[in-house]
Nucleic acid binder design. Sequence first.
DNA 1: AAAGCTGACCAAAGCGCTTTGGCTACGGGC
DNA 2: GCCCGTAGCCAAAGCGCTTTGGTCAGCTTT
Lengths: 351, 351
Amino acid sequence: MNLKQLSQKLSLSQTTVSRALNGYPEVAEETRRRVVEAAKRYGYRPNPSARRLATGKAGMIGYVMPTGESVDIDTHFVEFLSGVGDYARAHDFDLVLSPTSPDDEEMTYRRVAANHQVDAVYVSSPKSGDARIRLLEELGLPYIVHGRADDLDFAFPFLDIDNEGAFHDATRLLLQLGHQRIALLNGDPGKTFAVHRERGVRRALGDQGLHLQDRFRSSTTMTEENGYRAAKRLLDDNERPTALICSSLMQTLGVLRALGDLGLSVPDDVSLISHDDVFPFLRPEGFATPLTTTCSPIRAAGARIAERLAARIAERETGPVAEVWPVDLIVRGSVGRAPENKRKARLVGQG
Amino acid sequence: MNLKQLSQKLSLSQTTVSRALNGYPEVAEETRRRVVEAAKRYGYRPNPSARRLATGKAGMIGYVMPTGESVDIDTHFVEFLSGVGDYARAHDFDLVLSPTSPDDEEMTYRRVAANHQVDAVYVSSPKSGDARIRLLEELGLPYIVHGRADDLDFAFPFLDIDNEGAFHDATRLLLQLGHQRIALLNGDPGKTFAVHRERGVRRALGDQGLHLQDRFRSSTTMTEENGYRAAKRLLDDNERPTALICSSLMQTLGVLRALGDLGLSVPDDVSLISHDDVFPFLRPEGFATPLTTTCSPIRAAGARIAERLAARIAERETGPVAEVWPVDLIVRGSVGRAPENKRKARLVGQG
DNA sequence: AAAGCTGACCAAAGCGCTTTGGCTACGGGC
DNA sequence: GCCCGTAGCCAAAGCGCTTTGGTCAGCTTT
């Protein structure tokens, strides 16, 4: 059933039917009612390709997805995508994933923009001075960044969480509990969120006249295995940290595996705080020792970005709107007072 | 730059230019060369909406993605998606994700088919008698199933791995090593792959006159947390299993966490075999005790399905083509001889 | 030499929608 | 009584592509 057929059934012109369905004012209310009712009855759905060709609008939002040997699409991405999907589903639009090799990213963005296949895109995990953002400005394709990019000489629309604040608060809590040797297992060092998180830790340490030791820093993609390795390295040492802050529950899983190997326990030997993006299948309160977390559902962020993209497409949102979400620090059993300071213990032993 | 402009530059008709670019025979080779060269030079790219409208072909493959509160898009899905993306990227087509609430799945498939937004779709994790497959047959939308569905009264195209064989072989190995109490941590019991895996285990046990005890079965979605819980339940028992077979590395992570809690070690106390879908960020050989696995890269399956979907769209593949991949059993340190049989030990103690 | 192919090209008709630029009928203002 | 504004409808022109159904010259057939 297409527009022509529907309009014939109704003995109206295509114009009028189209206008009636699209809410234009120059249609009598009575006529509109008839049209809408008939459309429903016959199950009429406008052909999206035709509409797109006529309007130039696609009714889809896109994501340029780096893929290939070297790229892990990770758990965080999927959970975010689910959030985008939640909104899209409720508002009846689809998502287009344009896979790209990391080297051809720019070309892929250009193609996507030129094709008018999508009305808007989102950008995830930006780096400092991220080239994609500048490119999208140039292309004039509506977009929103999930996260932030520093070092860009123009403002841009984004949604981010207060990474610095979250990790500052987590660190401060550990300091208050007497911890001095605090290690940070961070994410990919190129990414802005990792930079901000480290900044938060440093600021809190700095407030106490301390600083983050290099050997207590680790920056890797946030996987179980990387968490395991980093923890092994950090903890298998006499002067090991008494507290660990992890950027992801994935890393934390690895950390727990390492702790098991080393026979260390939480929180007696090591206190643990993890950032929690909220995975439905991995709840920090379900751990043997429930985890203290800085918590911000990445899925909600996905839904919000979809919502804002829809708003931008409809031109209800314009300009470089910035949105930063606060992050909760939720204290559970995995933090405790710092164990007896080793050096002090040794001094006592010598005394 | 559109077709009209390009054809004017070349002083040719749109027809000829279109045919030249689409590889039709009735164009002189010399002309074709000129056209192709000019298209490249001017960066001409056909407008996909227009093409779609004219041909009815979309150049995209789709996936109806259940989402919402109750649905976990899991790691396996993403890795599979990456594989689809690998192929799509190399062959210049895009993916459309149509998010749906689990309740509206049928409607979403109907919408997708009616809209002609995609040329083909894939179906993942089918259940026995999966309704989606019947629906797709009815709709006439090309599709391929990743996995199998039993209890359907017609044949359909699919790609699956030999789950039964893999788990049979794994079980047989454990039996050969003297294990008698073997537990299976399976996936969602509704899914065919889980049924097949259990069948494999049962067959191997049956060959030795043994059978799978109910208390040694666990069927849950394959997450770390579920693995942890199941392992806790199974192993915190006098008559605990001496070997565990896991359906996913995700579960295995949880199992290892549980083993750590309980102070049990691999393979001295418990032997461990896990199915490995191959996640780039979690390599079984990287574990403290390297894991024995049944290994089949889910990403390759994604790429292969994309390839076959492309073939179906081009009508190079038709009919209910079945494809089953063998699965390797890779033996590493996590399996060993069964520990002294408890009952025997007790008898000795009494003797 | 007429008829019939064939290779190489083209004009124009869609595909199904939106939107421009009318047209008609009615009522109010002067 | 005339003009104009307006509400409500319509025909037709796109959007940019593919594809149908030609044309036409240059060959081969008989």
